[in-house]
Design a protein around this nucleic acid. Structure first.
Lengths: 198, 198, 198, 198
DNA sequence: GATGAATGAGGGTTCATTCAT
DNA sequence: TATGAATGAACCCTCATTCAT
């Protein structure tokens, strides 16, 4: 049985992983700036020195967490979404993937969604841009080529797909949805599909 | 011609307005925590004392900016959106309102979108929650009562409406859209409409 | 009927007096450094400008309060103590004067006792030194000349007189004495007398 | 030869002791509020961070200094004063203890005498109250029980004892006494004794 | 590898004082 | 006279980072 959220499957020091997990938990819980190095090392049960042994700086730690989240996203995306054949199926698979991931590891998804690049990182790296965006974009481009979706500017198709999914996850994470997201995955996928289909 | 974004039309000290505008600009540009009080007062061309004369603290300043943005949003929403009669028209009006507002005052809209309550504020107040959410929710509830939109959990309708709009604005603000948002307002509204209509 | 504690009997602006009284009250209550100019002007119900019109600075205000207290002390001392003829009578009169003054205007006496020159003033001016000390010293010098008190270093006589009185007032101001000081004036005077008499 | 004033004989960091000593010296010299953190760390030759590593705040530092002084007082009191048998001997021992302590460590005694709780501390802790007061009170209560001292309200006996001693120390610290206090300890004790004896 | 004492720049904030009105 | 908005030096404190052990 694979543990998806585990940081760097092979050969990583256990201490490094403890730091990584503690930092991600605290960054999500209290925000990057409200989390101090002492907070992280206390939560992780390691020393300050250990943290600086494994990560160059607090920012580098945040960056590592982010990169890991993006990579995890891309892995899941390619494995679960790109393998589908029609755009309709891909949208459904994307919704299902994001919803089940949220239920599996809400901390990680929240980090992915909310990390504001400007606050910490020098490059945008959230699902809201770059890699995440690109992934959705590719699906819609292919869908458009096949005539499955509307012939409009590509971003007008990307927006309802990622926007709707992100919004529902946010609502769930904010406690405004009483039911599990996975229960409405099919309905959500259908709604999104009706928005974009030709 | 009315300037909507002006902070408190009447009777406000010019210095207070300069501080307010500078702070909002910097908070959006660099993030709340990466903006220092010296940054703000330098940008505004006033003294530290002046800032603390008008605002109790940095946090209170952020709160004031946020409240103002939310009120501006609600005003525009009620004036431009609630006055329409059908759900289809309301969605179109909402899209148009948000897109033209973004073009008119991108800094303000960006603040509204990105302000992460957990980082600064004790209550969530973004368009992503509470008032903003409530506004969209009311439209969809009425639309459902009239049988104009799908009979599903209300959040499944709220998500594509606000999610798509937010996403498009984000893309625009990130420079990923070459054309003015207002040009695609009608198309966007139609896409959203197809997602939610019965 | 004379009001002893009134600041500068004649011709003083009422505003100046309000500031003076408010400042003394607050300095005693919260300490010099924990009392801000806004605190004083609020308590006095006047403007900041008014304060600076009548007093050069916060320190000058403290100095004025102190000088006034010392002058008040010296006046009372000369009127009520120096007029007595024997050292025994003078000690009794001194005790009675200080005790009744404390009951009449505890705020003023507390200020006199506790004002620590080093915290505010450049010159020592408390009853613990200079004028206050000198006053007691003169009595004891005369008493020694007349052979009424012990022939020892003068300070060994000054100490029990002022020390005992100050200590009892402190105990009273700290709420550690349930009865009025005036009730024990005679006993206290007798105790002091037995300490110093030849 | 024992060094009484040393802060926490065993196991304390040298840096902590340097901060402690520097702070006490400066608090006495210039007053708590006129002593800044930079003043203290410069005087101690350590960094700001070191100060905050060892003491939670400036106030906590003051509190630690105060508690230490009070404990030192109580130790000396019990060792040198309580061990005596008659009230006359105890008074003499108390005078001698305080006078020799003053000569040994004037900074510490001055701190003990002048620390104004209201300015910094939430509980009164000076020799002028609580522990210090209690110590003297106990002696006089026992003396009264034995019929050695006057049968009057206990505070009327406490006042001349502590008042006279404090006053003489103040005079010495203010430079108004040319001779060493220890030289007059016996005379002072006799004077106090005559005040309180039955 | 692992530790945590030590550093000090920079943070937000206060408040005595000035001065145009 | 009288006002209080405006000033900015100085305050206390935090915390990312270093380095001797």
């Amino acid at each position: 049985m694979r543990r998806y959220a585990a940081y760097q499957a092979g050969g990583e020091s256990q201490i490094k992983q403890k730091i990584f997990a503690a930092a991600r938990r605290l960054f999500v819980e209290k925000g990057y700036h409200n989390t101090s190095i002492p907070d992280i090392v206390t939560e992780a049960g390691v020393s300050i020195g250990a943290l600086y042994h494994y990560f160059e700086s607090k920012e580098a730690l945040a960056k590592a967490i982010h990169i890991h989240a993006v990579q995890e996203f891309l892995q899941r995306f390619h494995r679960q979404v790109k393998s589908k054949h029609t755009t309709r199926e891909r949208i459904q698979a994307f919704v299902e993937m994001m919803f089940s991931w949220t239920e599996e590891d809400p901390v990680m998804v929240e980090y992915l969604l909310y990390a504001r690049p400007k606050e910490v990182l020098d490059r945008a790296m959230s699902i809201c841009s770059e890699e995440g965006l690109q992934a959705v974009k590719e699906i819609m481009i292919e869908g458009m080529r096949r005539g499955e979706v509307k012939q409009v500017d590509i971003m007008l198709l990307v927006a309802p797909v990622s926007g709707t999914i992100i919004r529902l996850i946010e609502l769930k994470l904010d406690g405004l949805l009483s039911y599990p997201l996975t229960e409405v995955a099919e309905t959500a996928a259908q709604i999104i599909w009706e928005a974009v289909r030709a």
